[in-house]
Nucleic acid binder design. Sequence first.
DNA 1: TCAGTAGTTTATAATGATTCTAAAAAGGTG
DNA 2: CACCTTTTTAGAATCATTATAAACTACTGA
Lengths: 132, 132
Amino acid sequence: MKYIEKLRNSGLRPTKQRLQICEVLFNSEKTFHFTINELDQKIKKQASDKISLATIYNTVHAFEKKGYLKQIPINSNQTYFDTNISDHHHFYDLKEEKLIDLENADVGPINILKKINGKKIKSVEVLVKLED
Amino acid sequence: MKYIEKLRNSGLRPTKQRLQICEVLFNSEKTFHFTINELDQKIKKQASDKISLATIYNTVHAFEKKGYLKQIPINSNQTYFDTNISDHHHFYDLKEEKLIDLENADVGPINILKKINGKKIKSVEVLVKLED
DNA sequence: TCAGTAGTTTATAATGATTCTAAAAAGGTG
DNA sequence: CACCTTTTTAGAATCATTATAAACTACTGA
Ligand SMILES: [Mn+2]
Ligand SMILES: [Mn+2]
Ligand SMILES: [Zn+2]
Ligand SMILES: [Zn+2]
């Protein structure tokens, strides 16, 4: 199974529950943005077994730590994750409360001129808020 | 008093509590970033009277709505606000969990090439995560 | 193979930021 | 001062997230 490696790399044993979470996260053609709650709903529909919220949280956090998922910096009462782990940015539609991918090419190159002593840049993320 | 106008513009009457919140927020030489909890602590030290959390939340949200404060998009369990309402960006030091201002000039001009039908750009915010 | 061990799942409780409530207090107006 | 509206506040409610601990499962090595 193709997900076993992802799980092992993340320090997780390939259990039935985790493999089903992987199916929902990584089996779709397109990448997508989600909250834990939305993922839970999706799993309820697609997976054969019930999976506890605790397992979903744990698995998502392990993948995020390993870099198989990205957390999107945004102000919301829920944390947003992204299965698109490429270097990219986001529109946030304030009315619809929806995220839209902005590929790196859609944003010019970003050159951070200021340097902080002893620190290096881990990521540069742009959030573009949209209104009507 | 110089804060009365800010309060009236935000649709709020200038009460004793709100004026004290203004003192803490807008009387300092430098702008700063804060969570509601940090603001509460600061008020406890600087203000003569005790101010309830509900009042602090209400006042901060009214100022944010009016544009006298900015909310910073970041993943944290608490919401971060900024008294610097100029168009600017942020470093986020992952280890220290501290925000640092990045002036617009410190980031090259950002040109968003993708357009979304019927939507216009309200803001463009860059978050640069720092590690050691 | 299989018992032993370490890792996992789960229901449930705990936590903590934020929002809500409703009653008391203060502001504004004439 | 009366009257009415807005505000403050303590405390409760909400809700996303994390912690707990007991039952369950995967792996290992004899
Ligand atoms: Mn996390
Ligand atoms: Mn808010
Ligand atoms: Zn994305
Ligand atoms: Zn700032």
